[in-house]
């Protein structure tokens, strides 16, 4: 066939959709690690707290422990997987060097961030949805404010997608990346009120918990589902929104400057 280099036409949004699609296909290709494993792990939590302890403990008047803990477990799935998607994808691209495939393209920094974020949100919210569906085997949730719950889950996913981008840029090796997960996110999740309401803690620990950024996400999400929470929903949503804005700004500055991406 004769070579013809004629016929170039460009679409402004094509790079964004292509990168989003690539990021979704990336995690779908290894779905046993990226989707199945977190769903199985959350199911085990649900079994422990739903089928065994769920009916025997009550930490919130009017609700079973299973009903209390399920919103936290859903959000845990959302947070962990949103973070894991952006952090592992961007870090691996840096590590393997194939980030240059993106650096030479006309993809703008906002398109870059939005594509990575959107794919991470698809994964995070997908896992959250699966955890909720499985949780119906153990307890039914009242869904007091469903739109607020969806908004809070989306905000949590967005926030941790940004955090994943920032972590991937700063991490120098796999150890450093796993430290973000093991020594920062995991403790913050466990101490942020997934398994207990902050209100039952002694005053000092309760006050300290207010410094935990995840407390606002978890409490807000649970508030939207159960109709009760430690904080007014607007406060929880506002603080979480502020955190998301700060991290998004940081990610935008780093990626815009090509920090640790372009030599």
């Amino acid at each position: 066939m004769k070579l013809s280099l004629k016929g170039r036409s460009y679409s402004r949004w094509q790079p964004f959709w292509t990168l989003t699609n690539k990021e979704i296909r990336r995690f779908m290709r290894v779905s046993s690690q990226t989707l199945l494993a977190p769903i199985v792990s959350a199911s085990l939590y649900l079994f422990v707290f739903g089928a065994t302890l769920g009916e025997r403990i009550s930490v919130l008047p009017g609700f079973s422990y299973a009903q209390f803990v399920i919103p936290g477990l859903i959000l845990m799935g959302v947070i962990n997987n949103s973070f894991a998607n952006t952090s592992s994808s961007l870090f691996m691209s840096r590590y393997l060097g194939n980030i240059v495939d993106l650096l030479v393209t006309p993809i703008s920094p906002p398109q870059f961030i939005c594509a990575y974020t959107l794919a991470a949100m698809v994964r995070g919210l997908g896992v959250g949805l699966a955890v909720w569906l499985i949780s119906n085997l153990f307890a039914e949730l009242p869904w007091a404010h469903p739109l607020a719950a969806i908004a809070m889950a989306a905000l949590a996913s967005f926030l941790f997608a940004q955090f994943g981008l920032v972590a991937a840029i700063f991490a120098n090796n796999f150890d450093a990346l796993s430290m973000f997960n093991n020594f920062l996110i995991l403790p913050l999740i466990y101490l942020g009120g997934v398994f207990y309401p902050i209100s039952i803690l002694p005053e000092f620990w309760g006050t300290l918990s207010h410094l935990n950024p995840l407390f606002y996400l978890i409490d807000g999400f649970r508030h939207a589902i159960l109709g009760v929470g430690d904080l007014p929903f607007a406060v929880a949503f506002g603080v979480a929104g502020l955190q998301a804005t700060i991290l998004f700004t940081l990610a935008a500055i780093l990626i815009g400057k090509g920090y640790r991406l372009r030599n």
Partner: peptide, 15 residues
């Protein structure tokens, strides 16, 4: 296909 998309170019199967 993906790399063409990154450049904003619609896939040209013949090319």
């Amino acid at each position: 296909k993906m790399h063409a998309g990154y450049f904003g170019v619609k896939d040209d199967p013949a090319w």
